[in-house]
Structure formats: C-alpha cells, structure tokens
C-alpha cells in the first residue's frame, strides 16, 4: 500500500479533489449552464419590462439585479446538486465515492464548493451582460463583498438542503423546482422585498437569499455595512446562512447513513 497522508492534509486534498471533479463535470455540461443562464436572463428581462409598463426602469433594476444573481447561484446549487446526486445514485458512482476514507460531509463540502463557483460564474456573466447592455450604474465598494459572500453561502446552504434530501425523497425534483420558484418570487428579483406588504416582507426574510439581497442593496446604496448591521439584516443573514449550511451538512450525513441502512445508495 502507498503512504497515507496526515488527516488534515488529506481532508484539504479531498475537498480540492471533489471541487476539481465538480468543475470538470460542469465544463462537460456547459451547454446546460448556458441554457439555464439564458432562461433566467430572458425571464428577468421580460419581468422587468412588465413591471416597468413596457420600459426598463433602471433604478428598479439596480435593486433587483443582485437578486437575479443570487437566484442564479441558488438555482445552480439546487438543480445541479439534486441532479448530480440523482445521477450518481442511478449510475453507481455515489457508492464508489463512499468507498473513500473521507466523511460524507467533507465530500459534500467539495461538491458544494464546485457548485458555488459554477453558480457564481454564471451569475457574474449575467450581471455583466445586464450592466453593460442596459447601462446600469452600480457604485461598487469592497464592503459589499461581505453580504455578497454570505448570500452565496446562504444560496449554497439552501442547495445543500435540497441535495441532501435527494438521497431520501424520490420527488425532490418537483420540490426543488417549486423551491426555486419561491426564491425567485420572494427573493427580490421581481421587486425589492422592501416594496412588499409588511406581512409578506416578514415572510420573505425567511426565503433563502432574500436577506442577502437586502443587505447588498443597503450597502450598494452607500449606507455602509453599519447600516445593514444595525437594521438587523446582516446579523440575521449570518444566522440564516449558518442555519441552512448546518442543516444541509447534518441532513446530508444523516441521509447517507440512513441510505446505507436501507440500501439506498444505489437504485432499489
């Protein structure tokens, strides 16, 4: 047998291995990502025209474009996460990956890191297209990286919860589709959630990415991180992202263990 690396080095390498595999698989299926981007881009454009009464209202789009980008990250994490695991269960590669000494959470971390990069790349491309074609004007500042990073974690956490459920719930495809529609409707992509009636605004704050988009908008409006921290959006975003990630990783480990008990790592 060859030498075995010390655990922490092995763990780091394993996350990188999963990440590289995920990106390679993504590259092989890049046409799917492009189709998804086009679909979201066209929907956003249509909705923006509709809401603007046949015109593109730039002031409004400046506040809804971050939501579109967040929805794209969440959607890629969910669709690719759910589809990837389903395919691996049916193809038998999930079982082969479980013949690794690594824990299932560590493998999930690598898998979701790849999806985060994939989603972010798609979102950035869409963002650049809208900014340059429509002529939107953003006052970018380094402070926005904090709520943006947390929004990505929030979106990936949501994707991980859905991915984890795939191991147990056969109809997860339909559930995740409905979930993504809810994120699109209530996450601020149609209109900023501050425009919602009070009750609906409270509800929307529980929806993945919604708090993040609100926090990004506050920061981009030039109020700084202090404002989004003091109005409670940033701390709640932190809690929301942490809760989703914790739920996702725990659910993934629990469902893998349960699948091992029930013989569910491969098609039954």
């Amino acid at each position: 047998m060859s030498t075995i690396a010390v655990p922490i080095v092995f763990k780091t390498r394993l996350v990188r291995t999963e990440l590289v595999k995920g990106l390679r698989l993504m590259w092989r299926r890049r046409s799917m990502v492009v189709v998804g981007m086009l679909s979201y881009g066209m929907s956003y454009l249509g909705i923006s025209f509709f809401i603007g009464g046949g015109h593109l209202v730039k002031d409004l789009m400046v506040r809804t474009l971050p939501a579109l980008m967040a929805v794209v990250v969440a959607s890629v994490a969910t669709v690719e996460g759910v589809g990837g695991i389903s395919e691996e269960i049916n193809g038998g590669t999930l079982e082969q990956t479980r013949l690794s000494p690594a824990s299932s959470q560590l493998q999930a971390l690598g898998r979701m890191s790849a999806l985060a990069i994939e989603g972010l790349a798609a979102a950035v491309v869409l963002g650049i297209v809208f900014v340059s074609v429509v002529g939107l004007n953003f006052k970018l500042q380094p402070a926005v990286l904090i709520p943006a990073g947390l929004t990505i974690l929030d979106a990936v956490g949501y994707g991980l919860v859905m991915t984890a459920m795939t191991v147990r719930v056969p109809s997860i495809g339909a559930i995740s589709h409905v979930g993504n529609m809810v994120v699109m409707a209530f996450g601020g992509m149609l209109v900023p959630i501050s425009f919602f009636p009070h009750g609906l605004e409270i509800f929307a704050r529980f929806i993945p990415t919604a708090l993040g988009v609100q926090s990004i908008n506050t920061t981009l409006a030039g109020h700084g991180l202090g404002a989004t921290w003091s109005d409670g959006t940033l701390p709640w975003l932190l809690v929301h992202a942490a809760a989703l990630l914790t739920a996702g990783f725990s659910l993934y480990a629990i469902n893998i263990r349960r699948a091992q008990r029930e013989g569910g790592l491969s098609p039954r």
Binding site: K21, R24, R28, G91, T93, S266
Partner: peptide
C-alpha cells in the same frame, strides 16, 4: 467493481 452500475464518471 459493483454490479449493474457505471462505477466511474462517464463524462470524464
């Protein structure tokens, strides 16, 4: 090598 499955990633 497990039965009835691909065992490896076909796109790779």
């Amino acid at each position: 090598v497990l039965e009835g499955s691909r065992n490896v990633y076909w796109p790779l």
